[in-house]
Design a binder for these strands. Structure first.
Lengths: 214, 214
DNA sequence: TAGATTGTTAATCGATTAACAATC
DNA sequence: TAGATTGTTAATCGATTAACAATC
């Protein structure tokens, strides 16, 4: 792995796509794949793929391509998926339940180890094999179950409070689904997943094509 | 609106954030806001905001700032939210149900008008006031209810098939949650919402900080 | 008017694309 | 060896940041 080279956010965001597509290719029985072929499968130029991978090392064989199994391992390790992070979902409403049941997280190596909610009607229920705990027990449970990542799926008004609680309980990263900006200390990683962006950008483009001949 | 100027994807993706934050500010009773203040609230530089808005016109008053209500209207119109697009969700599993119940879409002006599923156990159920229909009735329902946008929340293996069906039924845009690349004709807009990207990028950064002193 | 803040141009920075030498 | 394909450098393109004149 090369030090002192800064990897672009765009590159990091493409790695999961490479990872996923390589695994699909592997299931199809493909052992070796070229950047050309891989690019076609996921809609990225071969140059882009080679450049992205090259920032982490030399994973291919010139004149041959990439060994699929090997590359999956390499990308998995780059992404840190081999750490099998423990995750907790906070807010077991519609979205929180859906996330708790999302099988693709498991297949990426994440372990769902805790669920939290504030509502007495929800506390005690079992979702995807995990019992929903009161949000008041967060501190002890985060410590006891060694939770690395907290997923926020509560209404916007509560999101900052939940984030503060997760941070003081000791998580290292937060994945925020609440549609609001959340502030955390610098050492905590935060990723905002804003579902309204995708739909709004669709709306933008659709309304353009409506009056294309202006 | 300025013609022949290409607006960057990054700009379009920030507009929904501006929109949302402006509405929150409005609720707090703020009538006029500067790019400085707005920037602080959503974690974007004031220059960035002014530049983004400037690509669509002159919405502010020099020496004063932006009139919140006016700007909300302007951005809403730029995003095409005033068209009140009709949307349908395909695949009423955990994620599909959550999306069907997502109140933020409604607050952006989208109308949920149809739900589809292939499973007899789900067909006929009511989710958020809408009855789940068989996927076999998609063509007629898309036409009759004038559906503009289809949301794909089915397992990856079925996603391309569902997309083909949505396109031939006549939707103009697709919002895809299935973790797979989908191919559609050029005239159809497609946005991929890949939930594994966010979590994987968290994992990447967390594993970096683990061996920060390498 | 003086102070504040926009809109816009120029400078910088970063990411993608193109080209090709290295080599399997 | 000849053909294929990577890894890497250079060229281009696009987006952000800085600076400031315009003006409310």
């Amino acid at each position: 792995m090369k030090d002192h080279i800064v990897i672009s956010k765009a590159t990091i965001d493409r790695l999961p796509l490479y990872f996923r597509t390589l695994r699909l290719s592997q299931e199809e029985g493909i052992d070796i794949i070229s950047s050309e072929e891989l690019g076609q499968r996921l809609g990225v130029t071969p140059e882009q793929i080679r450049k992205d991978l090259a920032s982490f090392g030399q994973f291919g064989k010139k004149g041959v391509g990439y060994y699929v199994r090997e590359l999956i391992g390499n990308i998995g390790e780059i992404l840190g998926l081999h750490y099998h992070w423990n995750i907790a979902v906070v807010g077991i409403g519609h979205l929180g339940s859906a996330l708790s049941n999302y099988q693709n997280f498991t297949s990426l190596g994440f372990n769902l180890v805790a669920l939290f909610d504030a509502s007495p009607e929800v506390i005690g229920k079992t979702v995807n094999g995990v019992v929903v705990e009161s949000i008041d027990r967060m501190t002890e449970i985060v410590r006891d179950r060694n939770i690395h990542i907290g997923i926020i799926a509560v209404p916007a008004v509560y999101a900052q409070g939940v984030a503060d609680k997760l941070v003081s309980a000791g998580v290292a990263g937060i994945w925020n689904f609440a549609p609001i900006k959340i502030t955390v200390p610098d050492k905590i990683r935060i990723v905002n997943e804003d579902l309204s962006v995708g739909l709004s950008s669709l709306s933008y483009h659709l309304s353009r094509s409506l009056h294309e001949n202006d």
